[in-house]
Design a protein around this nucleic acid. Sequence first.
DNA 1: AACAGGACTGCAAACGTTTGAAATTTTTAG
DNA 2: CTAAAAATTTCAAACGTTTGCAGTCCTGTT
Lengths: 339, 339
Amino acid sequence: MNKPVTIKDIAKKFKCSPSTVSRALNNHPSINEDTRRNLQEYAQKVGYQRNQVSLSLLNKKSANVGVIVPTINNYYESAIIEGIDAVLQNMGYTLNICVTNEQYLLEAEYVEKLLSNRVEGIFLSVSQETYDSGHYEHLEQVVKRGLPLIYIDREYEGFATGSVTIDDYDGAFAAVEHLIQTGRKRIAHLRGPNGMALAEQRFRGYIECLKKHNLDIDESLIITTNFKVESAIEPTQSLLDLPEAPDAIFGVNDQVAIGAMKVIRSRGLKVPENIAIAGFDDSPISAYIYPSLTSVARPGRRIGMEAARIFEASQKDTGETTVTTLVLPSELIIRESSC
Amino acid sequence: MNKPVTIKDIAKKFKCSPSTVSRALNNHPSINEDTRRNLQEYAQKVGYQRNQVSLSLLNKKSANVGVIVPTINNYYESAIIEGIDAVLQNMGYTLNICVTNEQYLLEAEYVEKLLSNRVEGIFLSVSQETYDSGHYEHLEQVVKRGLPLIYIDREYEGFATGSVTIDDYDGAFAAVEHLIQTGRKRIAHLRGPNGMALAEQRFRGYIECLKKHNLDIDESLIITTNFKVESAIEPTQSLLDLPEAPDAIFGVNDQVAIGAMKVIRSRGLKVPENIAIAGFDDSPISAYIYPSLTSVARPGRRIGMEAARIFEASQKDTGETTVTTLVLPSELIIRESSC
DNA sequence: AACAGGACTGCAAACGTTTGAAATTTTTAG
DNA sequence: CTAAAAATTTCAAACGTTTGCAGTCCTGTT
């Protein structure tokens, strides 16, 4: 209920002008020592708090940045956010978080809202539906405003000030190559949804690695899942029912790999003796399940930090618009499930 | 670089006053049909975007709420945030996320910043250091401003408009009772840091349950950890080295329980045959590790949603300041590690 | 005594929008 | 054709802060 104290209130109390109060509180040199002390003490006493909103209006700077992600309740995404925060927090920026749930409409709405809030930059992980829809006008707007638009993890080739991703292709390639090097010959892939960039790249990594090692590509060993544990159950069962079952499974992520592992073990088969497993994400789970899961690690926190640094840089060099594209290496973490 | 188009710009172009433009864009009834259509079309064409900052200044409403949490990169916390977002997003609010890393100083700073940003409410999970320091002036400020302050998960008895927590005592009690009912008699507790509310309550639940069932409280079976997997390693080893080892271990959270499980298995002992294990959090891990982990589930998403609803309610009834305190039930999920 | 200079303070405009009241234009009725 | 009514538009203030410029007052110098 208490209206916040304003500079004007203080000025009235002291029978001086708002300018004087403002300068006093900002330690402007041309203010009398006594005046300044008195005003500062009084402001302190009544709990004066500078109104950032009016300042934002005046300076056309809000000290806010937008972060738009498909989901937040997930180790990898939240690590990215934490990384962004770690860098930007001591530069005084506040993070405006928007969760799209993979919906294009929400993504577009959020961009509007953030622009309307006059954020100074937008970090975006493109939602699946946006890829599907092919609509990118909302992103074009951001760039037209001259605002930094930085893709985190899920990028789009256009409108960017920068992007920080990892090489999904490489990561998948490494995982599959590892399975081959440990002697597996019939390697199945529980892949992600069609059309999704990340899923396609991992799929490509899988395919190319098989080709490189002159292994047959058997369509019956490639089944689509939706990243969730349950979506791996049925596919894995059909894999095991094949006349010639696979001797290894590469899951598009850890959840799927874990789902596969569950089915395998429930059939009395052993991991990795009968079938080796590898996943993707190195989620905290993977080190602790039994057998522990070989997985490709994605440096979420670092992605966030690097993205924030690109933003930081974009604030400095006014003028040039350089596009910084960073592809961070993924790292294959070898554990029990593939040895 | 492109300066955003303002209402004034449009007014100049159309040789009319800003008022007219404003009303046209807001579909004010007293605007001529043609004028309105023309203005709206033009605004659309040049990509006019209402400046929310100036509106905030005018209305003293920012459509922002602050969310202050100790950490975000964690299943439970991010579920809470997701819950808040789910409710507030279609009311048009933007979440300003602040991560304190359990530091009192950051927490206080963030409160200042959010107040300065004129958020309309603050959701807070109190940081550990703040409990330790005993400083709550920053929270007092929030309430003095007449802003809703809603505790999520970690509360403090004071200054609140509301709080949504779970009953840690109850959850711990239920877990320990379950262990007792399955025949265990020497139940160890890997507890959390001293002084931390959540840790203390779980500890109390453990103690009281033992008392209720007339079991001895053996100080040597109670060891402090810091929630991390590694912090459970050494304590578990010393538990196993006791002349009379425990037949069950209740971990303050899943991480600790998993750490304990690792040590036990590495010694060739079996879970749950030799030693039963129970954790707390029902993190996504717990269902998938082997053996799967008995754990107390905390409804993170629901906490967030309920908190958001309390905020929503506080916006409606102007006047009365009722304090809504909600304690959500935790739920014991029984899995293999304790059967 | 006059004046330069320094020390301090106030004025007014600006940021972009909304809104009650006043002013203008158009329409209607007599 | 005029006056009143209706329709439409403009004025001006407000939100809280900063800042270049102008103003005031005092001190010291010649």
